[in-house]
Design a protein around this nucleic acid. Sequence first.
DNA 1: GACGCGTGGGAGAGCGCTCTCCCGCTATGC
DNA 2: GCATAGCGGGAGAGCGCTCTCCCACGCGTC
Lengths: 336, 336
Amino acid sequence: MEDVARAAGVSRATVSRVINGIRNVDPAIQERVRQAIALTGYAPNQAARSLVTRRTGVIALIASGAGSGEENPFPGQIFADPFFGRVAGGVVGHLRPLGVHPVLMFADTLESRDQIISFLRQGNADGAILISISAGDTLPKLLADASLPAVLFARPVRPIPISYVDVAHRTGGKLAADHLVARGCRRLATISGPLDLPASQDRLAGFQEAMAVHGHPYIPCAEGNFTFASGEAAMERLLAEHPGIDGVFVANDVMAQGALGVLGHHGRRVPGDVAVVGFDDSSAALACRPPLTTVRHPIEDMAAEMARLLLAHIEQPDLPVTSRIFEPILVVRESA
Amino acid sequence: MEDVARAAGVSRATVSRVINGIRNVDPAIQERVRQAIALTGYAPNQAARSLVTRRTGVIALIASGAGSGEENPFPGQIFADPFFGRVAGGVVGHLRPLGVHPVLMFADTLESRDQIISFLRQGNADGAILISISAGDTLPKLLADASLPAVLFARPVRPIPISYVDVAHRTGGKLAADHLVARGCRRLATISGPLDLPASQDRLAGFQEAMAVHGHPYIPCAEGNFTFASGEAAMERLLAEHPGIDGVFVANDVMAQGALGVLGHHGRRVPGDVAVVGFDDSSAALACRPPLTTVRHPIEDMAAEMARLLLAHIEQPDLPVTSRIFEPILVVRESA
DNA sequence: GACGCGTGGGAGAGCGCTCTCCCGCTATGC
DNA sequence: GCATAGCGGGAGAGCGCTCTCCCACGCGTC
């Protein structure tokens, strides 16, 4: 920086002013400084900058798993989950133009949680976006207790003073119910996600309530865990106990994909014999045959909103805890 | 830090020595310092540290797309690609125990490339791991020219003095060929990846060469682009032109999944009528019905090796350019 | 012409660490 | 006994920025 200042015949302070675009600087001098920067190939040192501004331009993007210690050398499955990828994409899309970048972190063990908290407390990142996979996750509370700026994807299981973004899962369940009933299905069933997750509960509750309104007070339900294989298994159970099923609401697309395969295997035509509605509108929905009718989870928009919310919390530390709920819509394709 | 030093009755230098575990410090004093740290809740400031050590403990994990300017507000598809997720998982798995974290970046436009180079030159990260998607990517060269520590996933299209990790794609193609021939297939075909990618070319060449050795000098080939839909389309073309096919090597699992659907739709039983071998051993291989016989791409191990290599380059800047090629193996399931 | 005011630039004090240099102490060898 | 090495600790100089304070200058006002 000294070099740039000398080359431009000004002081370091003026170089700093030009770089940060702060206060008025004579246009001629600005130009001279810019040329000097180009000439010397100067790149400001971010560490020095962070030291005084107390801002890093980095946020933590955390995938947080179960609470206890199932050690996993390759946390591939979570990062490989298209769901996580979509969130990451949405976050990067919003943050990149602002020059903010996410650091990828993974919390599974107790230590990794502590590591993340220190990481933030040491000022490695200005805040955190947390995608919590399992119900008993303690990280949201740790973040809230340390009063670190943070935003969650999805409402926490227990009430915690921390901002979050979510989708109206109940409405999604209702959309599926209304659609299946409207197309004439009479013997309905559902495959839910893991019921310790509020999201799963809400999708199920929304579906059941709407079905009750339509005159179907009891709906058979098989619980899955959002994986392909669990979708297959759940569909097998459902068919074994209720062979007359003519419509199924599946709590995510990947399980629906598994269910579709099982239905085909059992000679059921979709949507002729059984109509299927998924949830998420992920890439899996398009990979299904027939393409899946599904409830769109606006993940990218939600991720962008999380980024926005987090930046606001970083900017104004005393901003009150906020939540933002997105409305899902039904995407009708061929499976229902 | 001053506070800790005072509480422990020592100097800042000693606190620093205890924290960094450097030089001998009297065990009693170490204990005092540790207690003082716990008492004051002290967390060292990483920015100050980086300023003097010139090390950030952060590396850039870059997904780099095409060279020109197709703007994309949500780079979701690439992050949502399980392939990228597996790499990310492997990198995090290796780096996390060392206290190093990856920052997620995405290069599509020219500006984003410049942004990444500045990011590294400003010392935001100590080095870069680059996953280049398209052939004409200029980022590897930019990194090499700026002599920034970097490691690529896959050999670059044009020779560039930069370290990389890759799998022996030719061997993979050969494994598939040998297996299909051994199981009695006589009328073979293949679905390749985009042929401007060395990886696709090599898989195809390895397959063709091995088939030639087995007495099949000509193998029909349909080009795909690694997506589900392109696998379907390629399989349709192949069946239209060569209805008697009894074995297919598909250059990745996702396309194989698409191909499997098309084969079923055309009344072909797998593996009875047509045997199918994929490539990657991704989660898609297990989601296939029947489960896919496939060439295992040891992505997580390769990612860990990239991390190791990058750290070595960061540690010793004059380390010569290296490459490490992994040997694939065939995973036999039901599809062939 | 003296004064106030606004504008544009410089000086220099930190930000919170690490790390070199230095110093005092004790154990060791002759 | 003394010289010497080695160990454990302190002092303080930076690392490369930002930002406050201050000053010089030009302009308008009375």
